[in-house]
Structure formats: C-alpha cells, structure tokens
Design a protein around this nucleic acid. Structure first.
Length: 791
DNA sequence: GCCGCATGTCATAGG
DNA sequence: TACCTATGACATGCG
C-alpha cells in the first residue's frame, strides 16, 4: 500500500513537473504532503526550474534587478505585473493592428529586461474559452519533446539560452528543411496545406484539441476580419516604416509581417502558428495567439518582454525561412547574427537566394520592386523573362523581324518617302495639280522626255498596270537604265515592240514635227524636265546639267536652258541620298541614254572602239575638266550636242527602225551626224542588251545555285534511302538465314537424325515448295521427300 | 596601289 | 542584207 501511495505521489509530482514545464501553473500544495527535506530533495533548490520556460532566452527582469529566474518570487512578480497590465489595458481602445504597431515601437528603443519565465499575462489575457481549453488540455508531451525538454533542462543549468541555440534547437526540432523549402518553389501561396508545418510533419503538439483549434481559428478569423481592410498598409508601410526608423526592430517587424502572411493564409496560418507556438512554448503561444486571436486582447499592455521578442524571433526565423522574407531580413543586417549561420549563408548566396525568391510572397516581391535591395536572382528572373520574350523573337525568326532587320528595305522605304515628300509632294505636286495633270500624265512627265510623251502615253495605255504601281514605280522606272522608255529590261523587245508598234502614228507625228523638234532637241527635254518635274536621278542630273552648261557652254541646237534649277531640293544632289537605294544608286553609274542628261565622264575614253568612234566628234570634250561621274554627261550625249544632233538619245535609241530611218531621212543629217546617230543607237541598244544579258546571267547563276542546292538535297536524300535499303536488305538476309536455319533444324533423315547443313541444302521451288538435296549431288534424298515442306 | 564590283562599250555570232 | 539580240572581252569608275 505504501508502495502504491508512494508511486502515486511520485506520479503526481512528475505530472506537476511536466505541467510546469508546459507553462501551466501548478499549485498542488506539495509542501503540505512532503516533508521540507523531501520537498527539497524532490524539487531541489532549483524547483523553479519546473516553471522555467526552456525557451526563455534572456532571464532578466524588467527592472533590472537580479531576480533569479528560478526564484519562487517570480510568481508574485508576475502576478503584480499581470494586474498592472490589466489596469493599463483599461484605458486603451485601439485597433488591433495599431496596437501591434505601437507595441513594436514601444519595445525597441529600450528592450525590456528578460526573464519572465512564467509570465502569465498572455495566458490570462487569452480568451476564456481558450484559457479553459488550454487549462483543461491533457498534457501529452511527445517523446521527442520530452527529450527536448530534458535537454533544455540540462541546458537550462545555464541562466539562459542564446538565440542561436534556440534557432539551432528549432531547426533540429522542425523537420522543415531547406530542401523542403526548395520544394515549395512555385507554391508560395495556397499550398501551405502541404507545407511541412502540417501536423504530420511537425512534432506532436503539446496541446492539441479540436476545441482549441476551433477557438483559435475563430479568433484568427475575428482578427483578420478586422485587420483585413487595413492590413496591407499596416504590414507594408507601417511595419516597414517602423523597422526602418528604428535600428533594431527586425524580428518584430518580420514577425508581424510573417503574421500577416499567416493572415493571408488563414487556413494554413492557424495550424502553423498554433503548432509553432506549441512547439516554441506556452507564452508565445498565448501571447501571440491570444493577442492576435482576439482583437480586444491586443489592447492589453503586451509588455514587450524580451521573452516574447525572442519567441517572435524564433517564430519569425522559422516563418521567415518559410516565407523567405529576405528583403526584410536583409534590410536589417544588425539582426542577422540572430540567424543561424546556415541561413545567413544561404541568405547571402545568390543561388540560394533564388530559392528564397521563389518562396518570396507577393508582398515581398512588391517590396523588392519598390526599390529595396533584392537578390540578384530576382533580377535574373526578370531578365530571363525579358530575354525569353526577346528570344522568342530571335529564336523563331519571324518574317516580320526579317523584314525589319533588312536595312536595305528600310533604307529604300526611307529614301522613297523622302523622295516622295521632298521631291514631288510640295512644289511639283502642287504645280502639276494646278495644271490639271492627271496621274498618268504626271507619270509621263516624270519620264522627263517630252519628245516621247506620246509614245509614253501609248506605252501606258498598253501597260496600264504600270500606272497602278504609283509614282514610286514611275520614279524608279525613270532610272538610268533607259528602261523607262523601253520598259522592262527583261523583255525589252516585247515592250518596245508593243509600244512602238502601237505608237507608230505617234512617232510619225513626232517625226512629222521634226522641224519643231529639231528646234529644241535637248532644251525641250530640259525644259520639260525642269518645268514638269523630275524625280531622283533626273533631278540630280538636272543640277549637273546646269553646272555643265555653265562651264562647257555647249548648248544643243537651239537649246536654251531655263535657270530654274532651284526648283528641286538641294539634297537631290546629295549623293548619300541615293546610297542604299539600289535602283537610284545605279543612276550614278548610268552614263548614257537612260535619261536625257546622263553623264559619262568627259575625259573618259572607254575603249579603243570608243576612241575610234570619238576621234571625229568627241574631241572637243577632251579638254573639258574631268568631272565626277554624276556630273558627267553621256558621251554620246556630248557628241550629239557637239554635232548638233536634233534628237534626244532616247529617241534615237528607242525608235523603231522604220521610224528611225524616216527620222534620219527627214532631218537631212550629214555623214558625221548619221554616223553618230547610228552609233548612238547601236551603243544604246547594246547597252540595254548588255544589261539584260548580265541580268540573265545572274539569273542563270542563281538558278544554277538553286539547282545545285536542290541536287545536293536530293543526293543526300538518295543516300539516306540507300542506307535504309541496305539496312533493310541486311535485315532480310538475316531473317532469311534464321528462317533457313530453323527450317533445316526441323528436318530429319530417315533415321530421325538432324540433317547436316554441310551435306544438304534446301531448294526453294517456284511454287513455294521446299525440297532437300545433297549439296554435291543435288539429288533429292529419298527419305527427304517426306520432309518436304510447303511454305 | 590593289581588288572587286558595276557599268559601258565593242566585236562578234546568231537569229 | 540590214537589223537586232546575246554575249564575251575590255576599259573605266568607285568604294
């Protein structure tokens, strides 16, 4: 009996110790049952240890007096404090989050002394239901926690825990590892149900009942329903501002922010905080949950003890690891020493920070984006996104990008726009519009050769599509290829034939009016060109004409050049304008009949043939100054002007032979003039022919290259097919050999023995029959007839 | 000065 | 036979 009583008594004592360890006040009056010596022996002089919170890190009292945390006088001390807190709480009525903020402000400047082992106020200020629930909870410490408590008791021989130790203990206790954090990348929100903080993953809570959870959840909901409309400001501005304005408020701020995170994740936050608090200890549990769970509780004078601060620190460290609020932590390096080295290292490591970034809540990201220093990986993330967006363009080369990248096209567009805007849109366009020129007439006039305008009309009538191409084409067609008159270089004959055949009467008219034409063979061109407008190269040449005219003073027959050169913008003489515009650039090298005043070099004696042809009529120009090619006249033009040829070179070149002959006859030219005119015609046609020839040659080369590429592709394809056929053939041979072997293996001689493959062979008949014969004799075995197989 | 390219020109063959 | 076209070859200018 005594044994049982002793056993029961000791069991009660042990239970009281455990309850005390859990933060519950245990007043079982052991003193009345125990002899003082026993009491001393059982509880020892360190009996206060039973009520010492192992998570109490700084056992110092507020007033600074050296009250030992294990002293039994602490009970009365905290009772007094609790009562004072009640009194102080009566004069305040504040919004919870404001209270939180005030709490932070008041705490930091002068950290309260530590060591409130059994600080009861959070518990007592907790809701009654919670308190009852807590008070009535069966104490079910897990083995792990028990071990931890034992360790803590051992460690508590020292006066306090360092935060590092607490963190270390936290990390050892929690199964929440970095890997698990990393595994949470991409699931920062809403996945906390699967978070390692789940009940399965956490150590079993000391106190865990459904009622408690329900009450806590209700309190959380009440809290968040109040805080929700304002929590954003509180969390993101007030807390940050508070933290920034103070040197050492990090963990409170972080903790608050972490609480906010939990507030945003209500469903998960309850479990997390609750379990976390359970793990960390009762004061924190009740302090946080009690105050946060009930708004009015937050009005309590949450005397910010260092104990609570440390709880929050530990809590926040844990939660910070979860939420990876790197920014806030990083903004307060003074408190970095409160973190474990591992965490610190990860915090400063770029690659690890990436994982933190991945875990960053949205608020933190926003915070980072507002200018706070954020990890480089965050930047890299954005950069990657941008690069991917760009890379998308580069990776998949879109036709549009190709088009945009084509500088030549852009230059062409720019130059074309410039030509249209500056060259034609202003003065000439207005002028032509005032003169009532229809579009096709404008296009004709841009050819700059009025003497052939009638034929040009015919040409345009025969090819109306050319007009539909707009002024650009007309301007381009007015290039120095002299194809503007003879049409496409690819089919000069056809175009010429069509135009000239259809315009024979027109040409006849022009011929009939030879007298008048002769009167101004070139000057009229000039006049027409200058008065009615030229484009691009013609304008450029026009200026050159005027300069040449002043210097050489060699006028055409009856020619008089108007001095309205300034009709055209000066930049039309700008050589750079033409650069990058192949068709206009080509004009620079065009020396001949393409336009009335194309300009080969005067001193240029092209070939021996040219020299021979020029010996009679081009010598006067030999003394002319050497000019740039853009300033030069066509040699034949020069010669024609020298010999007073009354036709334009275009007319000479492009007229049908009949009309040309009539022209020569009607104009009564002398021998030199006839020779020159014929040479001009010959060279002009040959020039066009040469251009066409070269174009064809290029086309042929391009076609050959394409053919080569096509043949190479075909060759590669044939090689692949050949290899595939060979592989198939090998496979067929292999299968045939296997089949042969299989068939042969099933054959037996008359004695029932397998046939020797070296002596016999199979013969496959055309009808599908298979016979066995001797290799040497080739005769059928008598007995083998039976083994004849029909395939 | 050399080189490549573009162009003009001549000679010539062929239609 | 005259004319035209195509083309090779050459010369020249330019970048």
């Amino acid at each position: 009996m005594l044994y049982l009583k002793k056993y029961f008594t000791e069991g009660l004592i042990q239970m009281a110790i455990l309850m005390s360890l859990c933060g519950m006040r245990v007043d079982v009056g052991l003193e009345s049952y125990l002899h003082p010596s026993w009491h001393e022996m059982i509880l020892g002089p360190m009996s206060a240890l039973t009520q010492t919170q192992f998570h109490n890190l700084r056992n110092r009292l507020e007033d600074g007096q050296g009250l030992h945390p294990k002293s039994v006088d602490l009970d009365s001390f905290f009772t007094t404090r609790r009562l004072l807190g009640w009194v102080h709480s009566l004069d305040r009525l504040q919004v919870p989050q404001v209270e939180l903020e005030t709490w932070l402000v008041h705490r930091e400047p002068d950290p309260l002394p530590m060591g409130c082992p059994n600080q009861p106020f959070p518990l007592e200020r907790a809701p009654a239901g919670v308190e009852r629930a807590l008070a009535g909870q069966p104490v079910e410490p897990t083995a792990r926690l028990g071990n931890m408590q034992e360790e803590e008791e051992e460690d508590d021989k020292e006066t306090s825990f360092s935060l590092e130790e607490c963190l270390r203990l936290l990390e050892e206790t929690l199964p929440f590892t970095e890997e698990q954090q990393l595994s949470d990348v991409g699931s920062r929100e809403g996945d906390l149900d699967e978070h390692p903080l789940d009940a399965e993953a956490l150590p079993s809570p000391i106190i865990s009942t459904d009622n408690l959870s329900l009450n806590l959840e209700l309190h959380w909901q009440d809290l968040f329903s109040i805080m929700e409309p304002e929590n954003t400001d509180v969390d993101m501005t007030s807390f940050d501002h508070t933290l920034d304005s103070r040197p050492s408020g990090t963990f409170l701020g972080v903790g608050s922010e972490a609480l906010h995170q939990n507030a945003n994740n209500l469903d998960n936050g309850i479990g997390e905080v609750g379990q976390e608090v359970h793990l960390m200890g009762t004061p924190l549990q009740h302090g946080l949950l009690g105050s946060l769970g009930q708004p009015e509780q937050a009005l309590l004078p949450l005397t910010p003890s260092a104990e609570l601060d440390d709880h929050i620190s530990a809590f926040d460290t844990r939660d910070t690891l979860k939420n990876s609020n790197v920014n806030t932590l990083h903004s307060h390096p003074d408190h970095m020493n409160l973190l474990s080295e591992d965490f610190f290292r990860r915090l400063n490591a770029g690659d690890n920070l990436n994982s933190f970034n991945n875990n960053l809540p949205d608020e933190a990201l926003v915070d980072n984006m507002e200018g706070r220093p954020y990890p480089a990986n965050l930047t890299s993330v954005f950069l990657v996104d941008n690069e991917e967006n760009i890379e998308d363009v580069d990776g998949l080369h879109s036709p549009l990008s190709d088009l945009i990248d084509d500088e030549a096209i852009l230059d062409d567009i720019k130059l074309l726009d410039l030509v249209l805007e500056e060259g034609f849109s202003t003065e000439m366009a207005a002028r032509l519009d005032a003169e009532g020129y229809p579009d096709h007439e404008i296009a004709q006039e841009k050819n700059g050769n009025h003497s052939v305008s009638s034929m040009a009309v015919t040409e345009d009538q025969s090819q109306p599509r050319r007009h539909q191409q707009g002024l650009e084409d007309e301007a381009d067609s007015d290039s120095g290829l002299s194809l503007d008159f003879s049409h496409s270089p690819a089919s000069p004959s056809t175009s010429e034939a069509s135009s000239y055949s259809a315009s024979s009467s027109s040409s006849s008219d022009s011929l009939s009016s030879c007298a008048s034409t002769v009167g101004r063979p070139f000057s009229r061109d000039v006049d027409d060109a200058t008065e009615e407008g030229l484009f691009g190269s013609e304008m450029e040449v026009e200026v050159t004409i005027k300069q040449e005219e002043e210097e050489v003073e060699v006028g055409a027959v009856g020619g008089g050049y108007p001095e309205d050169v300034k009709l055209f913008p000066a930049n039309y003489n700008n050589h750079r304008l033409v650069k990058g515009f192949p068709r206009l650039e080509h004009i620079d090298h065009d020396h001949t009949y393409n336009h009335p005043y194309s300009s080969p070099s005067l001193g240029k004696m092209p070939t021996k043939h040219a020299k021979s042809s020029l010996r009679d009529n081009a010598r006067p120009y030999h003394n002319a100054r050497r000019m740039s090619e853009t300033e030069m006249w066509s040699q034949d033009e020069q010669r024609a002007r020298a010999l007073k040829i009354p036709f334009s070179n275009e007319l000479i070149v492009n007229l049908p032979v009949e009309d040309f002959n009539d022209l020569l006859i009607n104009c009564q030219l002398d021998e030199d003039q006839l020779t020159l005119v014929r040479d001009i015609r010959r060279r002009g046609k040959n020039k066009i022919a040469a251009q066409n020839c070269r174009k064809r040659k290029i086309d042929v080369l391009v076609g050959l290259e394409e053919d080569v590429s096509k043949l190479r592709r075909q060759h590669s394809r044939l090689l692949r097919e050949k290899q595939e056929k060979l592989r198939n053939l090998q496979e067929m041979k292999r299968r045939l050999a296997s089949l042969y072997q299989e068939v042969f293996s099933r054959l037996r001689d008359k004695n029932g023995r397998p046939l020797d493959t070296t002596e016999y062979l199979l013969n496959f008949g055309p009808d599908g029959s298979v016979t066995v014969s001797l290799r040497q004799q080739g005769a059928l075995l008598p007995g083998a007839q039976n083994s004849k197989k029909q395939r």
